[in-house]
Structures are given as C-alpha cells and as structure tokens.
C-alpha cells in the first residue's frame, strides 16, 4: 500500500515515530471501513456517465490508426506495415495516434463552513463535495486518466488501488482546511478541479485561479451550496453565527433582508462565472438537495472537452 511505502520512506532513521505511524495506519484502516459506502455511491453515480480514453490528434503511442508514411532511415522495422507496402513499390510505416491519459488534480474544500446542512435529511456540503470528487475520480480512472489529490503530495496515478488510496486520504481528513487550495508547482497540461462553496471573497479566488491558470492548467470550478444558503428560509429575529470563528450577526427581521441577500449571492456567482470565463475555466453550481448526477455530468463533460489550443 502506498501508505506503507510512504511511512517507510518517511521513517527511515526515525524509529520513535513508528508507533505513531502504526496508530495512524490503524486509524486509516478503520476509516477504510467507511470506504465501501463512498465508493459504491460514487460508482453508482459514475455508472450513469459513459467514459472513454480520448486521442490527442497527433502521432504517438496509442492504439488507434493515424497515418501511413514512407519508411525513413532510423525507423524501427516492426513499424512497417507489410500489406500496404506490398500493394505499391515504396515501403510504408504505420503510425498510431497519440492517446495519452490526462492527469487531473482534484481538490475539495474541507473547511468547517462546509460541514453545514440546514435540514437533517440533506447531506452536508462536505459530504456532497467528497461524493462528487470520488465519483469524478472513479470516472476518470475508469476512463484511463490519472488522478491525484491536490495538496496530498502523491503523483497522479490511474491504477487499481488509486481509488482506495484516494478515499482513505479524503476520509483521514488530514488535508489542510483552507477555503482555497494552496498553489503548488504542477506539471503543464494537467487539469484541476476545485469543488467547494467558494464563498471566499472574490479577489482571493481570482488570485488562486490566476496563479493556477498562469501555469497553463485548465481548471473547473464547482460551487456546492446548501438550499438554505440560497433561499435564506428564516423568519423573525435571528442571530446568525459564523462557522469559522466570525462574529455573530443579529438581524431583527430576516424577511426584510432576504431579497438583498439573494441579490448579493447572485452577484457573487456572476463574479465567479466571469472569473472562470476569463481564465478559460468552466463553472458549475450545485445544490445539495439536487441529485449529484447532474453536477457530475456537467463536470465530466467539461473535462472531456478538447482544449482549443
């Protein structure tokens, strides 16, 4: 398991950390017992969306036929297509299309404001975000792409254990709990998916997006909100408490401010959409009371689209 190799590399020369690591491993194995529900849910969601490996429209390693060309000095003899060469005089070499897996970097917001749900029957925003992330990862891995968690330090991979490792990492909850991802050096031509409630101030989001897209990454923004955050269904005199240590706010009559709040939320969303458009990214909004398939479909479609470069 990657966890084991990680721990062995980490602990070389530090035997007193072995016990802590063992405990953490036990903890993560306990967490792994929660994997099946998440994976099953993710796979169920993902099963509604078809997938496939996509070609890169250029010559390279792959399986789909691309072109025939004349044999030149230096080509490998195994590449000669004898049937074609037998039809005419010159010798032809068969070339395939370059089909390469993409690497997609996934990130979800695990700050405490994501742990909100307005009604017992709905999932918290965090749960929905995790679900979307895992479902996307399942789809991508099935489609042959490579996935990795942004901020986890692991390279992207698309093999069988990737999903398990990914799920365990998510459930361990050891990733940094910021409202926005930390910008790290990522390879070019990768894609990045940011899932969260994106309620941070627009300038902060703009900074992150600009940093990531400046490195040549194509990104996708997914905003997951609770229906109460969209509709503000409270009445009367309410004292609001922030979930990340902000000050309380007392509103004498919530009905009076509802309209203004919804306008403000709309304005924030428009700002996000403009941001994404400017950077060439996609933007999807999602409410936790809607089925997750809709968001996933939109997201996957956005990822599968060919870049116009």
């Amino acid at each position: 398991m990657a966890r084991d190799s990680f721990s062995k590399r980490d602990l070389a020369g530090k035997p007193d950390l072995a016990a802590t690591a063992l405990r953490a491993q036990h903890r993560s194995e306990a967490l792994a017992s929660r994997l099946p529900p998440l994976l099953v849910a993710a796979e169920r969601v993902a099963a509604t969306v078809a997938q496939g490996v996509h070609g890169r429209r250029r010559v390279g390693t792959g399986e789909t036929f691309w072109q025939y060309r004349r044999y030149e000095i230096g080509d490998s003899a195994t590449m000669i297509d004898w049937r074609q060469s037998g039809k005419t005089q010159p010798v032809f070499v068969r070339e395939n299309e370059w089909e390469a897996a993409q690497s997609v970097w996934l990130w979800h917001d695990s700050s405490s404001s994501m742990g909100y749900r307005s009604v017992q029957g709905l999932p918290t925003k965090k749960e929905r975000a995790e679900l979307l992330l895992m479902a996307l990862a399942v789809l991508l891995v099935r489609g042959g792409e490579r996935v990795a968690l942004l901020g986890s330090g692991l390279p992207p991979s698309g093999n069988k254990v990737t999903l398990n490792r990914l799920a365990m990492r998510i459930l361990e909850d050891t990733l940094p709990k910021d409202g926005l991802p930390r910008v790290e050096p990522l390879p070019r031509h990768a894609q990045v998916v940011l899932i969260g409630d994106l309620l941070s101030p627009l300038p902060d989001i703009h900074k992150t997006v600009a940093a990531l897209s400046g490195r040549g990454l194509r990104g996708h923004l997914v905003q997951v909100l609770d229906p109460a955050e969209e509709t503000l269904p409270f009445d009367g005199r309410v004292e609001f408490e922030g979930m990340e240590g902000e000050d309380e706010l007392l509103i004498p009559r919530v009905e009076a401010v509802r309209q203004a709040y919804m306008e403000r939320l709309e304005a924030h969303r428009d700002g996000l959409a403009a941001l994404a458009r400017a950077a060439g990214w996609s933007f999807v909004t999602h409410r936790t009371d809607r089925p997750p398939q809709t968001a996933l479909l939109a997201l996957y479609g956005a990822i599968a689209q060919e870049p116009t470069s």
Binding site: D197, A228, F234, F240, E241, G242, L265
Partner: peptide, 10 residues
C-alpha cells in the same frame, strides 16, 4: 432571537 449557524454569514 433564534440562534442559527450560517456559513454564508459574510
């Protein structure tokens, strides 16, 4: 007042 936790308090 009722006390409600709300993430979009900003």
């Amino acid at each position: 007042p009722r006390i409600v936790q709300f993430p979009a308090i900003r």
